[in-house]
Design a protein around this nucleic acid. Structure first.
Lengths: 349, 349
DNA sequence: TGCGGCGCTGCATACGTAGTCATGGCATAG
DNA sequence: CTATGCCATGACTACGTATGCAGCGCCGCA
């Protein structure tokens, strides 16, 4: 491979000058610059970012940690992050923590001296995040936060979104509601569940513990769980899945069992990934402003790299309920709802 | 950041010895090694892969070029590639050519001195691939090949898969078949289309040119195209989409227009991505052995990095038709098929 | 006891670039 | 005409690691 010295020799200048040309240093004559550029073009020389990184201790590389690239939520997030990084001249080093533990990936990223790391799937007790934050390595938590760690964080209002779901379902008259939770160690699942329960309790509508199942944000698991739920007597009238992928699994399980949605059971998801709006699903769900979230996360990271000493910032973006066609009043809701309202709700209100 | 010299000083050894410990060099006493490891652990030292890369001219980084990360096919492929790379101790530098031209991404990857590049979405006339191959830079084409370029290539038998689709549809009695093609400059789309047409022609079943539309492997575009196709009189009795994502679009368009699948129109896809088997679609499609494809691509690349002078190899994996529920005989097929068979097909057989 | 050999360690250097400091040329001001 | 200063350029060095080569001590064999 050619080096800048090779180019310099051929152009009759010093390696320093070549370096200046490559970095758009203004103190190079137009003629000299052109001469160097000609030689570069002629030979197809490519500067060595490794050597540059060694000197500048900047690599223009940013690690992005993902837990499950098969979940379409993450490609959507990745795309947004990637394009915003590109705006800063940065590149993504993607690592899927499905293949190896988060810690291993993070260590390798640090070895490669990435300028920073974006965590999209950190768990609440992530030691990796804690230790990196303690060492003041530039990181940003996008989508999920970590308990007890002070660092730049960008999330959606998961609690608020789940509350909107609860209000929506209550409004429709549902009282026997199942919840399929996500990864129990994720802040998203915890916050969504907490927000949902809070509204239900306030309304005096209890959540039957046997109707709360963990789906681990996993399609297969949620599918199996839904089958179990639908075989209960009586089955729930509504199922709130804490992400869209699990909601798809639920909808598909309903199809398999020939359970009508929303006639027999309402289904709600969370995320509003692209496929949620497809005719195959038309899922009622909660929209996250993914673009803004990603953009802000990258902005924060870039700022931190530039100024490591600014205090950590946490931003929360609002979420929004998107009503589509998977929610409706429960069967025989008219009667039951009136009774319920006359009895339970007023008594508790 | 700590350096190996810092560790060396503290452990009372030379930087060389620290380097040897890190690289599992056998000629270091057990005691010395332990002493060094202790210091490393105590300080949380992380070796600098940049500096290492400068010396060894190996980065353990492999670039992976993707055209559209939102197409679930690519996350599936990515996951397979990533896990196989991990087996070699290599890491993925993912670049989505949706954000910037392939050429720009490739240049940056080369600047970062990646050990090699996996192209998953190269177009038939890719200058980037041609120039890299000419410079003997280690690359491998996975999924798609490039015309006139000799380099390691791993593909699925796209022509064969499409032929199986054609035979399947003919067997069911379809004669008015629409095709929604992919990116016209991709080898996959070209080969699939060619294989499909070949079988139809051999059977004496013509392909009405107005029924051949480009969908560019894009969901939205295929959705709109399907609407147009279904509004024709008479509409096609079957639609072959050259990938699954477009087939989903077609199925969803059918849902929107309340066109029964497979009663009124049969739909076939290609790829067999995960969602194709979901109850929402149950798509008849062609399965690609994605795991094998990815694994082999990485193997080839690794071998080429080790031995740059071995002649390029091209491997083609068989594809397989997966019959699900989106294909059936056309309406009034019994009569029409018999007539057709008695006339056209026998006359041409 | 002497010498060769082996096992362990350290010294010095190279990798390709960016940046610091020095140099020489030229113009402008005194 | 000289002094000052700026501009364009170049020599030199550092970045952190790996590696070739040298050194040193110890063991075994003659």
């Amino acid at each position: 491979m050619l080096t800048s010295s090779d180019i310099a020799r051929e152009a009759g200048v010093s390696q320093t000058t070549v370096s200046r040309v490559l970095n758009d240093d203004p103190r190079v004559t137009k003629e000299t610059r052109q001469r160097v550029i000609d030689v570069i073009d002629r030979h197809g020389y490519t500067p060595n970012a490794i050597a540059r990184g060694l000197v500048t201790s900047r690599t223009s590389l940013v690690g992005v940690l993902i837990s499950d690239i098969m979940n379409p939520f993450y490609p959507e997030l990745l795309e947004a992050i990637g394009s915003q990084l590109a705006a800063y001249g940065l590149r993504m080093l993607v690592a899927d923590t499905a293949s190896q533990p988060e810690e291993v990936h993070a260590r390798l990223l640090v070895e490669h001296r990435v300028d920073g790391i974006v965590f999209t799937s950190a768990l609440l007790d992530s030691q990796t995040v804690a230790s990196l934050a303690a060492r003041r390595f530039p990181i940003v938590l996008a989508n999920r936060y970590v308990d007890g760690v002070e660092c730049d964080t960008v999330t959606t209002d998961n609690g608020g979104g789940a509350k909107a779901v609860a209000e929506h379902l209550l409004e429709l008259g549902h009282e026997r509601i199942a919840v399929v939770t996500g990864n129990e160690k994720s802040s998203t699942s915890r916050d969504r569940y907490a927000g949902f329960v809070a509204v239900l309790e306030e309304a005096g509508v209890g959540l039957d513990p046997t109707l709360v199942r963990t789906g681990d944000y996993d399609y297969e698991r949620a599918h199996a769980t839904t089958v179990e739920l639908l075989e209960l007597t009586p089955p729930p009238t509504a199922i709130f899945c804490l992400n869209d992928v699990m909601a798809f699994a639920t909808l598909n399980a309903c199809r398999r069992l020939r359970v009508g949605v929303p006639e027999e059971v309402s289904v709600v998801g969370f995320d509003d990934i692209r496929a949620s709006s497809y005719e195959a699903y038309e899922l009622t769900t909660v929209r996250q402003p993914l673009g803004e979230l990603a953009r802000t996360a990258v902005d924060l990271l870039a700022e931190r790299v530039a100024a490591p000493d600014v205090p950590p910032r946490s931003l929360v973006f609002p979420s929004r309920l998107i009503r589509r066609k998977t929610t409706a009043p429960p069967r025989r809701a008219i009667r039951r709802r009136t009774v319920a309202q006359a009895d339970g709700r007023r008594a508790n209100g």
